[in-house]
Amino acid sequence: MSTHIPETFDEWRHCIEQECRIVLTKEYIEQRLAILRELNHEETQRFIRHYGEHHWQQVVRWFERAQNQWGQTSLIMKEKGVKG
């Protein structure tokens, strides 16, 4: 696994999906956002201590972007009659 800290959405998504082999499902994104948006959550505090507040804010925005893209993809699939 790379020790490079992602600086862009595309780098972050590559890290999550390719290097960590995590599927960015709707449920996974929602779970991560619920934790990362809770400032007093132990995991969020650990993340901020390790990566800093700026990177934490950026990662929250990237998860929100992924959530929006997931929703758009789901809508397109529904419009085309594809079940997913």
Rank of each mutant, 00 (worst) to 15 (best):
H50W: 13
R65M: 09
W62T: 01
W12Q: 01
W56F: 13
F63I: 01
Q57P: 04
E27P: 00
T73S: 09
D10Q: 13
N40V: 13
T73K: 11
Q58P: 01
E42I: 12
H50F: 11
V59A: 08
V23I: 11
Y51E: 00
K78Q: 14
G81S: 03
E43F: 06
Q72G: 07
E7P: 06
Q72S: 15
E17N: 08
N40I: 11
N40D: 15
L75M: 12
A66H: 00
C15M: 13
H50Y: 11
L75G: 04
A34F: 01
C15F: 15
R65C: 05
Q45M: 14
L39G: 07
A66N: 03
H55Q: 14
I76P: 02
F63S: 00
Y28N: 06
Q67N: 07
C20Y: 12
I22R: 14
Q67F: 00
V23C: 09
Q72L: 15
W56E: 02
D10A: 11
F63R: 00
R46D: 11
K26A: 05
R37K: 15
Q67C: 00
R49T: 10
R46K: 14
G84W: 15
I22M: 13
M77G: 04
Q69M: 10
E42W: 07
Q69V: 01
A34W: 03
L39I: 06
Q69I: 00
Y28A: 08
T8R: 03
Q69A: 06
E42M: 09
H14W: 08
H54T: 12
E79T: 03
L36R: 04
F63M: 02
I29L: 12
E42K: 12
M1N: 12
V23M: 11
V23E: 13
K78M: 14
W56D: 02
H14F: 08
E19K: 02
W62Q: 01
K26F: 01
V23N: 10
V82E: 10
W62C: 04
E30C: 05
H50N: 15
R13T: 07
R13S: 06
S2M: 09
E42L: 12
I22S: 08
Q18N: 14
I5F: 10
F9V: 04
T73P: 00
E43L: 13
E11F: 06
E53P: 04
E17S: 13
F9L: 10
E43S: 13
V59D: 01
I29V: 08
H55E: 10
E79A: 08
Y51G: 00
Q72C: 09
I5D: 05
I48H: 04
R46A: 15
F47E: 06
S74F: 11
R13Y: 10
V60W: 03
G81P: 00
F63H: 03
T44Y: 02
L36G: 03
R49C: 09
F47V: 02
T44S: 12
T73F: 06
P6C: 06
W62L: 00
G52P: 03
L33C: 05
K80V: 07
P6A: 14
C15E: 07
A66C: 09
Q31H: 11
L24H: 01
E43H: 09
Q67E: 04
S2H: 07
K83I: 08
Q58E: 13
I35E: 12
K78F: 08
H41T: 05
Q57N: 15
S2L: 09
R61V: 04
I16L: 11
S74C: 09
Y28E: 06
R21I: 07
H14S: 06
Y51Q: 04
C15S: 10
K26Q: 09
